[in-house]
Amino acid sequence: MFDHNKHIGLFFGSFNPVHVGHLALANYIAENSDIDEVWFVVSPQNPFKNTSELVDAKHRVNMLEDSIGSYPKFKVCDIELKLSTPSYTYKTLNELTFLHPNFHFSIIMGSDNLINLNRWKNIDEIMRLCTIKIYPRPEYPIAEELLTDTISIIDAPVFNISSTLIRKGLSEDKDYSYLIPKKAHDYIKNHGLYKFHH
């Protein structure tokens, strides 16, 4: 099969853990936009985040793999786990465009990230390598003046679920079996992840 000019949406995140909001959003975008596939780009430790709650990348990749099953428009991408840290987006994009020269990449990001975009390292290089698709997040209206030829809004329903909320609930023994994909939920239970430690 020839993949010439396939349009790939890059959905970056720690997926700690993956939840139905991630999958539902990506599923909607994959079925209702010009994006052919959504790749879940698993982030290593974020230098700006408290990492004590971040489970090992191997577990996060496994949970994603289990959750996406055989849906052909989803792929788990562990490229950032193989690059030097900290993982800068421009480095990831350079590597992806080198590996897949015929693909067109778009970063899928929430409207809460748009305001800080100009602070990203080598943002000019990022904008040269890809386009950016902004989806709505509650309480973060999209400032029209920030939209350009390469930054556009992607229509998608709002899913206000956070991994932080889910981790907190799991640590309190809440049953979140409808907020986490079943296979990921089973994986968490089987591996004893996100248990509350005194």
Rank of each mutant, 00 (worst) to 15 (best):
R60H: 10
I180W: 00
K133A: 13
I108T: 04
I68Y: 04
I132H: 06
T51S: 15
L165K: 14
D186Q: 14
L10S: 05
F98Q: 12
I132E: 11
L54I: 15
S33T: 08
A30G: 06
N116E: 15
C130D: 07
C77A: 09
K58F: 14
L93P: 12
F2H: 11
K91Q: 15
S106N: 08
I123Q: 13
D155G: 02
V158S: 05
L165W: 09
D36P: 01
T164M: 05
Y28D: 02
D186R: 09
E80Q: 13
D34V: 04
Y194T: 10
L10A: 11
I35G: 01
V20N: 09
K182W: 00
N116G: 15
D36C: 01
E172C: 13
S33V: 01
I180H: 00
P138V: 11
K73E: 01
I107V: 14
S111H: 10
S33G: 02
L54G: 03
E31H: 06
P72A: 08
K82D: 12
P72F: 10
K6I: 11
V76F: 06
M109C: 07
M109I: 11
P44Q: 03
D124R: 12
V158Q: 10
D78C: 07
H59L: 09
H7W: 01
N122V: 04
E145S: 15
I153P: 00
Y178R: 11
Y178W: 03
E145G: 03
I79D: 09
H197V: 15
D175F: 10
K168V: 08
N122H: 15
L64D: 03
G192C: 11
I132F: 03
N113A: 05
V18C: 04
Y194S: 09
L117S: 02
E53P: 01
T51G: 11
I108C: 07
S67E: 03
K168E: 14
L193M: 09
T164Q: 06
V61M: 04
H4Y: 14
I126Q: 06
G21D: 06
T92A: 13
K174Y: 12
P181V: 00
F40I: 07
G169Q: 15
L179T: 03
G13V: 08
S163W: 01
G110K: 07
S111F: 05
L117C: 03
T85P: 07
I161C: 04
I134R: 05
V55E: 13
C130S: 15
V20G: 00
K174R: 15
K133W: 01
T92P: 06
